[in-house]
């Protein structure tokens, strides 16, 4: 990915962070969007700054963009800022999302709006802002991070699951529209991954073991790094004939 300029949203933690590091290893310049308050809430204060130090130590050209996707306009601003930092944008990875476990009938209007805003509306803003430049340059890679919940929705994640499906549907639509411009659009659907967001599920080690054992045919959760290879495939020339695909990295949980 030498010479490629990538924006990774939600890039300070877990899967997003692993993708940032893999892209950096592959030679890309990277803009990293993060939300400081979200990282703090996950007891990961300063995660973005720590990642920035690590990248600087490796000599990677990069920049941090703090943005709260709950606010209208922040998606668009993030793309403009990334283009300013890197001189353009060749790769867009939509990884930022929020998740709230709740019974369907208990989900408040405010919570539904928050999830819709961050998990879908902001993605639309980011895409609308990033696509024209890719079309103009005749090359682009767009990767949406979806979820096993698209195909195997969990009862307590109904809105999250529905929004991930909506994002994938939008991705297929754009894949068709943008292919003639050399822009591919794909989705990566992780299964159970040990992330900062679900660290609370690992507090009880015994319970976590049971969750892992029953999660998929591999009987374990993935490390965030295990998602980065697929992201690299879909955003590099190795995946040059793949567009409109939904790659399941679930340990077989989608079966």
């Amino acid at each position: 990915m030498s010479g490629r300029r990538a924006l990774v949203t939600g890039g300070s933690l877990s899967i997003g962070r692993a993708i940032v590091l893999a892209f950096a290893d592959a030679g890309a310049d990277i803009a990293i969007q993060y939300a400081g308050t979200a990282d703090e809430a996950l007891k990961s204060e300063g995660a973005a700054q720590n990642l920035s130090k690590e990248l600087a130590g490796r000599g990677v050209r990069h920049g941090l963009i703090e943005a709260d996707f709950a606010i209208v306009g922040e998606g668009k601003r993030t793309v403009l800022e990334a283009e300013r930092l890197l001189g353009g944008l060749d790769v867009l990875v939509l990884c930022a999302s929020v998740q709230q476990r709740e019974a369907f009938v208990d989900i408040s209007a405010a919570e539904r709006e928050r999830q819709t805003r961050i998990n879908f509306d902001a993605s639309v803003e980011l895409l609308q802002a990033a696509v024209p430049g890719m079309q103009k340059r005749g090359w682009g890679r767009i990767l949406t991070i979806g979820s096993i919940n698209q195909t195997r929705p969990e009862p307590t994640l109904a809105i999250y699951a529905a929004l991930k499906s909506a994002q994938h549907n939008l991705g297929i639509n754009l894949a068709r529209q943008l292919a003639p411009y050399g822009v591919t659009v794909n989705n990566l659907s992780p299964g159970l991954v040990a992330t900062a967001r679900n660290s609370w599920r690992r507090v009880d080690a015994g319970q976590w073991q049971t969750i892992e054992r029953n999660a998929n045919p591999m009987g374990r959760a993935a490390r965030p790094e295990e998602m980065a290879g697929a992201a690299l495939l879909l955003c590099s020339d190795a995946g040059s004939f793949i567009t409109g695909a939904d790659l399941q990295a679930t340990g077989g949980a989608h079966l």
Binding site: T184, P217, A222, A228, G244, L247, Q248, A249, T250, G252
Partner: peptide, 16 residues
């Protein structure tokens, strides 16, 4: 190893 958590999957490689 990049696909260490990918199993039971079919990747479509067809230009869309």
């Amino acid at each position: 190893d990049a696909a260490s958590f990918v199993t039971g999957e079919t990747i479509l490689v067809n230009g869309g």
